[in-house]
């Protein structure tokens, strides 16, 4: 791995660990291997959303050309070790690919693992159904919001461990 990428990820890693969001358990980053090319991210489902109480695990791949190119994030890639499926218009319910502009052409080198994870958390709170990644979910989101909410909550319960709040929902 290029020296600049490794150096930067090390610094960013320290930044996340020290950040107040980690202290509040809103986000977290863990190393997967020693080379800093692959990380495991975690974000808590934001409150007042169907994802509340869920813990969403992400696979983060850092390219050789980081920070000139964005990191690659997958939310629910079933065939790798992290399994957190999510029901969200901007995240594929099958592949886990995330549709977020800052992970594509709007990436800026000043962004960090911490800001990316926080942006993703914001995406969970405010979906963009007009720029969908999963057409089925986006259609449901637009046309029958109740069913969408229930499905998203169910998936949070089943795949992201949102147990307590699910019980509250069914009561």
């Amino acid at each position: 791995m290029a020296n600049i990428a490794a150096q930067r990820i090390k610094r960013e890693f320290k930044e996340v660990i020290r950040s107040e969001e980690v202290a509040k358990c809103a986000i977290n980053v863990e190393l997967v291997n020693d080379s800093f090319t692959e990380l495991k991210g975690e974000i808590a489902g934001p409150p007042d959303t169907p994802y509340e109480g869920g813990n969403f695990v992400l696979e983060i791949k850092v390219p050789e050309t980081y920070p000139f190119n964005p990191p690659k994030l997958y939310l629910n890639k079933i065939h790798v070790r992290f399994i957190t499926k999510i029901w969200h218009p901007n995240i594929s319910s099958v592949t886990g690919a995330i549709c977020l502009d800052i992970l594509k052409d709007q990436w800026a080198a000043a962004m960090t693992l911490r800001t990316v994870l926080l942006s993703l958390q914001a995406l969970l709170a405010a979906a963009e159904p007009d720029d969908p990644q999963d057409a089925v979910v986006a259609k449901q989101f637009r046309e029958c919001r109740d069913i969408f909410w229930q499905t998203a909550r169910h998936w949070t319960h089943v795949y992201a461990g949102g147990k307590f709040l699910l019980n509250r929902w069914y009561k």
Binding site: I4, Q7, R8, R11, P67, F68, A109, A110
Partner: peptide, 9 residues
């Protein structure tokens, strides 16, 4: 202290 926003050094 100055920090480079690309390499963070």
């Amino acid at each position: 202290v100055r920090q480079c926003w690309v390499c963070f050094a």
